[in-house]
């Protein structure tokens, strides 16, 4: 597909080049450049940039106010398709630490991140320190060459807990005086993640066996499913060009009807049309299927809300799935902080 290309960027770039006096004569440079430099050596807080909110949130939990944390991609943004703007890059180059997911989650940005790392900056792929055995591969392994992994690691809280450790280590390395504070923060968030994990295990286990099938638009829930013993069926593949076949829809409808699965799920960053087709198909066979709510897959909820935190996001998913598939879970989740969404 034609794709969205750097038109905006080009515009800005052209403007900038014009300002800079065409090809290379930088007229007003020196005065503009003084500012950030002067600050750099002072006693200011380290600047941390996270590509996705799941990382940024955990980092914030660990570091508290000791560092200045910014997140590049906002709510509801699909990181696979994110298009960095010039200010993102400037911000990236101006940060002391950059955390990114890795495993090629960040699409086009990955290249720039790897380059920055090679240029000696502290740019850390948080998942890539996880041992390969616990990462998931797509159904059929790719040929030789580079290993290809499923990047949606945050869906398994226990793995994300280990990622939190990576983040804390990196912070401590970069800012030794804060070591203790980071250790405290890490212990705290790890405890809360463990509690969440326990809640999720309990809640999801209450779903009747036959109905332990999570049907959703695309395949982001493999880690989640592995952790909690669910079967996950995506309508279409992970690739952005992937398109479902009619056969796939028919098979899923058959599965829904046969197992009397009560709900299917919509994801925050994927159109829901596919899922609606399943509901229609099952209805035509006399089986009523509900849309079990919107799950957060690649992005979190609005900043400032409970769903806008990592814990809240997973809590939301677990609670919504449990309740929709006929399990037992409190309406407002593990910490009773979920927005009361009308779950059918």
């Amino acid at each position: 597909m034609g794709g969205d290309r750097g038109f905006a960027a080009l515009r800005r770039r052209a403007l900038l080049l014009g300002l800079a006096g065409g090809l290379g004569l930088l007229a007003g440079g020196p005065s503009a450049l003084a500012q950030p430099r002067a600050q750099a050596q002072g006693a200011r807080r380290p600047r941390v940039l996270a590509t996705v909110a799941m990382i940024g949130d955990v980092a914030r939990e660990i570091a508290g106010n000791r560092v200045e944390i910014a997140t590049m991609m906002g709510e509801g943004v699909d990181p696979h398709l994110y298009r960095p703007t010039r200010s993102d890059i400037v911000r990236m180059l101006g940060s002391d630490i950059v955390f990114y997911n890795g495993l090629l989650l960040e699409g086009k940005l990955t290249d720039a991140l790897v380059r920055a790392a090679r240029a000696g900056r502290r740019v850390v792929p948080v998942t890539e320190r996880l041992p390969a055995e616990i990462l998931l591969k797509p159904a059929e392994p790719g040929g030789e060459g580079e290993q290809i992994w499923d990047p949606h690691v945050w869906m398994d809280p226990r793995l994300w807990s280990r990622v939190a450790a990576v983040i804390a280590d990196t912070l401590a390395e970069a800012d030794p005086p804060g070591r203790e504070e980071y250790a405290r923060g890490l212990a705290d968030i790890q405890a809360r993640i463990a509690a969440l994990d326990a809640y999720a295990e309990r809640a999801l286990a209450s779903i009747p066996d036959r109905q332990r099938v999570l049907i959703t638009a695309h395949d982001a829930f493999h880690y989640f499913a592995r952790r909690y013993g669910l079967r996950v069926e995506g309508i279409q593949g992970l690739s952005t060009e992937s398109e479902a076949g009619v056969r796939r829809i028919e098979d899923l409808v058959a599965l829904l009807v046969e197992r009397r699965i009560p709900a299917v799920f919509v994801e925050s960053s994927v159109p829901e049309r596919n899922v609606r087709a399943l509901v229609d198909g099952a209805a035509a066979r006399g089986h009523r299927v509900a849309i079990g709510g919107t799950l957060f897959s690649d992005a979190m909820g609005a900043p400032g809300s409970y769903e806008g935190t990592y814990i809240g996001m997973i809590d939301h998913n677990v609670t919504a799935i449990t309740r929709a598939l006929g399990g037992q879970a409190p309406e407002r989740g593990a910490n009773a902080r979920l927005a009361a969404r009308a779950t059918p």
Binding site: G6, L10, A112, L238, E241
Partner: peptide, 27 residues
């Protein structure tokens, strides 16, 4: 794409095709 295992990979065609000026860096 669908018939091969590529569908299960996060193969982002846009990414390959959509070079972006911002990510061309000379660090």
């Amino acid at each position: 794409l669908e018939q091969s295992h590529a569908r299960d990979v996060d193969l982002d065609v846009d990414c390959v095709l959509s070079g972006q000026l911002e990510t061309i860096l000379w660090l």
